[in-house]
Amino acid sequence: MMNKSMIIKKEVTFKATNEKIWDLLTNPEMTKQYMFGCEVISHWSVGSSIIWKGFTEHGKEVIYVKGKITDITKGKSVSFTMFDPNIGIKDIPKNYVVLTYKLIEFENGTKLTITQGDFNDSENAKKRYEESEGGWDLVIPIMKKLIEK
């Protein structure tokens, strides 16, 4: 077991309202444009499920991530558990990590803080941590482009 926590933390500032960023995060039509073609589907209430679904290159529908909403303040923050059922590890609680989006609106825009982890206790922790961090590095610039175009 490693003791170093494996938590990803990214902060992005958008020249846009809180409302616009919330839509970017929760609207399936928006997520499809930056999250590798995946639509986010949820009722956006505590305890409701959340899934990210998309299609393979062969047109087969796949659920890439699934979890449950654990905390939400509409328009301000949401936390949910997440698990990729396609990576060959057990679907058990310790293999789920928590992802939190927190929005803070200020005079010229909105700051989005993304926190994901802790991967430390999960199976394939280092690989999952590195892949997730790399994923955000690809996704964030696209998010900015979509909002600030």
Results as ranks from 00 to 15, higher is better:
Met1Val: 13
Asn3Ile: 15
Lys4Gly: 15
Lys4Cys: 13
Ser5Pro: 15
Ser5Gly: 11
Ile8Gly: 04
Ile8Thr: 08
Lys9Arg: 12
Lys9Ile: 13
Glu11Lys: 11
Glu11Phe: 09
Thr13Trp: 11
Thr17Cys: 07
Thr17Phe: 06
Trp22Asp: 02
Leu24Ser: 01
Asn27Ala: 10
Glu29Gly: 12
Glu29Asn: 14
Met30Ser: 08
Gln33Gly: 10
Tyr34Lys: 02
Met35Leu: 14
Glu39Gly: 07
Glu39Thr: 07
Val40Gln: 06
Ile41Leu: 09
Trp44Lys: 04
Ser45Val: 15
Val46Ile: 08
Ser48His: 06
Ser49Ala: 12
Ser49Trp: 08
Ile50Pro: 00
Ile51Gly: 04
Ile51Asn: 03
Phe55Met: 14
Glu61Pro: 11
Val62Arg: 14
Ile63Thr: 03
Val65Arg: 06
Val65Gly: 11
Lys66Glu: 06
Lys66Ala: 02
Gly67Lys: 00
Lys68Ala: 09
Lys68Pro: 12
Ile69Thr: 05
Thr70Trp: 10
Asp71Pro: 09
Asp71Ser: 15
Ile72Asp: 04
Ile72Met: 08
Thr73Gly: 14
Lys74Gly: 15
Lys74Ala: 15
Lys74Asn: 15
Gly75Cys: 07
Ser77Ala: 13
Val78Arg: 02
Ser79Asp: 01
Ser79Asn: 02
Phe80Asn: 00
Phe80Val: 00
Thr81Ala: 02
Phe83His: 01
Pro85Glu: 01
Pro85Thr: 01
Asn86Arg: 07
Asn86Tyr: 07
Ile89Lys: 03
Lys90Ser: 13
Lys90Glu: 13
Asp91Met: 07
Pro93His: 05
Tyr96Leu: 03
Leu99Glu: 10
Thr100Arg: 10
Thr100Glu: 07
Tyr101His: 08
Tyr101Cys: 05
Lys102Val: 11
Lys102Ala: 13
Leu103Ser: 02
Leu103Tyr: 00
Ile104Phe: 12
Glu105Ala: 06
Glu105Asp: 06
Phe106Thr: 09
Asn108Asp: 10
Asn108Trp: 07
Gly109Ser: 01
Gly109Pro: 00
Gly109Thr: 00
Lys111Met: 06
Lys111Tyr: 05
Leu112Phe: 01
Phe119Glu: 02
Asn120Phe: 10
Asn120Pro: 09
Glu123Arg: 05
Asn124Gly: 09
Lys127Met: 12
Lys127Ala: 14
Arg128Ser: 11
Glu130Ile: 11
Glu133Tyr: 11
Gly134His: 07
Gly134Thr: 12
Gly135Asn: 03
Gly135Thr: 06
Trp136Arg: 04
Trp136Cys: 03
Leu138Asp: 12
Leu138Phe: 12
Leu138Ala: 14
Val139His: 11
Ile142Gln: 10
Met143Glu: 04
Lys144Gly: 03
Lys145Glu: 10
Leu146Ile: 12
Leu146Met: 12
Lys149Asn: 13
Lys149Ala: 10
Lys149Pro: 08
